[in-house]
Design a protein around this nucleic acid. Structure first.
Lengths: 224, 224
DNA sequence: CGTAAAATATTGTCTAGCAATTACTGGTAG
DNA sequence: CTACCAGTAATTGCTAGACAATATTTTACG
């Protein structure tokens, strides 16, 4: 079940590997990646390693300023809030559109099933199906650009979570329940309610993430 | 008045130059860019040219599949609609937020002045100030990620327009009037009205652009 | 005229290396 | 013992030339 179409070039293969390792939490924030390091580690020439690094920089997984070593991006409280607010902007528009058509995406239901299945396991395993649920909602409207943008936000959330150890943001049961509610509101055609509820749904993990990266969380982190 | 901070590296300089030429309409859609061509034209080594090309590919200004020559992206009717719908999703969220705070961005007013000044000139010159108006609205909420995404959509619109010769989408007077109305709705705090009016405001140029790139325009292209 | 084979172009990657910038380390002076 | 400065090492940006693999174009043959 390889969802990715196996990297064609060596550069892509290296970039894919590094990206997945970073998203897996293998490298803490601000870990530096020198070109020669990468080159020797993957046994390729330096220009190839350089290209892979630059690809990841263009994806905002690594950052680097001119003449300086590339580092894993470390997201702070400001970043977390910006990511979540931008997420919300896109996703609320999607919810309004779905509710208007009263169309409940099959992909979202599938992701919901997944979440229910792994009920009881660690909080970290819920992140992926959770994200798949939201991504499925966005994908269902068939806008490549909206999907692409939302996807980049999702991977930034993952990047952020990967850099935090024992995070338990929200109980899986709650996530499942809230997702269910969202789907029901879509089915009922109540876009405004769905849109408002999304804000609530995102606010708790948002502020808990803010706290986890060293910021001062808002009241939403503790509510209810 | 160099808005850009003069490219640091040779690669950036070349990418900037090519990008601006493409956006200026110097290269029609699907013009191919070979690495050696670029290398000789800018008198640099091939890997440098390659890097510049790949940068533009990552920005979706050029496209290329593995082992094939890079080409200027040509946007079709589907693309135009997707760009405009995605624009609308982001910008409507921004309008709601601005209306709630009843804050009329200074940057938008400035862009509006610019539009009024060049009243009477060719339709093409209105594109830039028009875009600046919308970009100013988005920038004013201070979300780097939202601005970045919106900016990429704006440059895709420009790319699209650059590939069309005698386009006269909408009269400047109308644009000015509609922008003014948007600002008034924001000031009045009526986010929903602003959001709805934006749809109207974008629908005409959207469908006319669709027609210009060879698609079948919807009725909005001709309405009143 | 159409198709297959050969020639050409183009890309992906490598090796090797140089200059410029940045980071580091150690030593000296206060 | 600390602070600052110089020299060294590490790192990046770019170049040149080369080779194999893949695309494209041309040529030659049926």
């Amino acid at each position: 079940m390889t969802s990715q179409p196996a990297a064609a070039s060596r550069v892509d293969a290296i970039a894919d590997d590094i990206r997945s390792r970073i998203l897996r939490g293998e490298y803490p924030g601000e870990t530096s990646f020198t070109e020669t390091d990468v080159a020797t580690r993957y046994d390729v020439a330096r220009p190839t390693a350089k290209a892979a690094i630059e690809k990841l920089v263009s994806e905002s997984v690594l950052e680097r300023r001119t003449n300086k070593t590339a580092r894993v991006i470390k997201l702070g409280p400001e970043d977390v809030r910006d990511i979540y607010f931008t997420r919300a902007r896109l996703e609320k528009a999607v919810l309004l559109q779905l509710a208007q058509a009263r169309s409940v995406p099959a992909g979202a239901i599938a992701a919901q099933r997944e979440l229910e299945q792994l009920d009881g396991s660690s909080g970290f395993d819920t992140v992926d199906p959770d994200m798949r649920f939201h991504m499925a909602l966005v994908d269902s409207i068939g806008s490549p650009r909206t999907s692409r943008m939302y996807g980049s936000l999702v991977s930034q959330v993952k990047l952020c979570m990967a850099q935090i150890q024992g995070l338990h943001l929200v109980q899986p049961e709650r996530i499942i329940k809230e997702h269910q509610h969202l789907l029901e509101l879509i089915e009922a055609g109540d876009g405004d309610a769905a849109s408002n509820f999304l804000d609530e749904h995102l606010s708790r993990p948002r502020e808990r993430l803010v706290a986890a990266v060293g910021g001062v969380p808002g009241p939403e982190a503790f509510r209810d």
